[in-house]
Design a protein around this nucleic acid. Structure first.
Lengths: 220, 220
DNA sequence: ATATATATTTAGATACACCTAAATTTAAAA
DNA sequence: TTTTAAATTTAGGTGTATCTAAATATATAT
């Protein structure tokens, strides 16, 4: 069975919004995520239901099926592999890759993805630190904590961001933080939860609790 | 102004069929090339006319405009750069690249193509030996002769094939010929025009006039 | 429990890219 | 030059993916 580009995009959005199939998802939320209208979503949900990638009862929400998960993970895998390619081989900055990867993820060719994977040396994480599912859809996520939850003197490595909007990524770049940076919590202000961080043993920077909450750290 | 994927495909076909804008093209020929029906072509020609990438007078045929040529060459450039990428970086065989490149050529991102070009070291020819237009649409073609037109003892290098169907490419691979191979005409049969060819100073092979007519050689 | 608000779906349109069948125009043959 | 054949276009219709506006179902509040 084959999915159209639009169907792949909807399924991916549903997979993310449902947190990998755990939660139920609202039509309105899908519409917001996809920048379409709820009416269009209803149309599409019927189609996805017909193709049995979701289980859909109108007004009662939906559930991704196992088949649906497989398709979603395949698209996510392709998206993230292309992101690695763009950053590592074509020297894109991480705030420039999303839009292009969004197009590249729909190229249909099993061979292409196999070869790309091999060419990139079977990466396990994309440039934002998100895990890349293998060809069977298996994901090995690293245990990660939010930077704002760490205590003084604890150390680790930035491995991902929650909000990967271009604006946030540019902000991080500007202050000298990046995926892979080794960090240490120097101080934490009780009053507002803001933090003082040491980056790569040389640069200190201050950030609000909100910003820190968007940064995921692999503790060491 | 933006073209849809279908419009890009039609324009590319028209560019090729018109030999770069020189000849006039028939609706039926476009339909054959695109595997569609003449009626669909008429529809599309009207649209392409509205967008002024062709000059179209119904029943009287069409002419690519300068704008149209620019678009066509841009698409051809992208197609051929991706082919180089697939062969040189992902180890595709040259008979496997066409279908995938056909999809990749429609990815929209100027930056992507600039970076890809640079990453591939600004190649001037694709794996089939066809020239890659530069970002301004300029093509520097090599003077090439058909193998069947060469005389005994003349030498050269295979740089392109006319018929780049998967079947023909597989045939070439099988007999040990390939783009880049150095060849010498050992013998030519008057009766049917068939040839005996020395490949890479070691292997000899026989081929019909028809096969040789499909092989383009840069003489040396 | 009834009224009100919110979420969701249906109805009816539009644009794209295609189709078949019929009409029309141009070209070729008698 | 008229007839016939071939090429091309128009008419009308399909499926996909979208929209707005209206209807309906569910959830919340009085």
């Amino acid at each position: 069975m084959e999915l159209t580009t639009a169907e792949e995009n909807y399924l991916k959005a549903i997979y993310h919004l449902s947190d990998g199939g755990k939660k139920s998802v609202a039509t309105n939320d899908i519409a917001a995520e996809m920048n379409t209208k709820p009416a269009s979503v209803s149309d599409m949900l019927r189609k996805l239901g017909d193709k049995e990638v979701i289980e859909y009862r109108k007004y009662y929400g939906l559930q991704i099926t196992e088949t649906g998960k497989r398709f979603a993970l395949q698209t996510i895998r392709k998206h993230r592999l292309w992101e690695v390619f763009l950053v590592e081989k074509l020297n894109f900055a991480w705030d420039e890759v999303h839009e292009v990867a969004e197009q590249l993820e729909h190229i249909q060719s099993t061979l292409l993805i196999q070869r790309l994977d091999s060419y990139l040396n079977y990466p396990k994480f994309d440039p934002h630190g998100d895990p890349i599912p293998d060809e069977f859809g298996d994901v090995r996520a690293r245990p990660r904590v939010q930077l704002n939850e760490m205590e003084i003197d604890q150390t680790g490595q930035i491995v991902a961001v929650k909000d990967s909007s271009a604006a946030f990524l540019r902000y991080l770049d500007k202050v000298g933080a990046y995926i892979g940076a080794r960090i240490k919590v120097l101080d934490k202000v009780e009053f507002d939860g803001s933090l003082e961080i040491l980056v790569d043993q040389k640069k200190t920077l201050f950030m609000s609790k909100d910003v820190a909450g968007n940064i995921l750290v692999l503790q060491s």
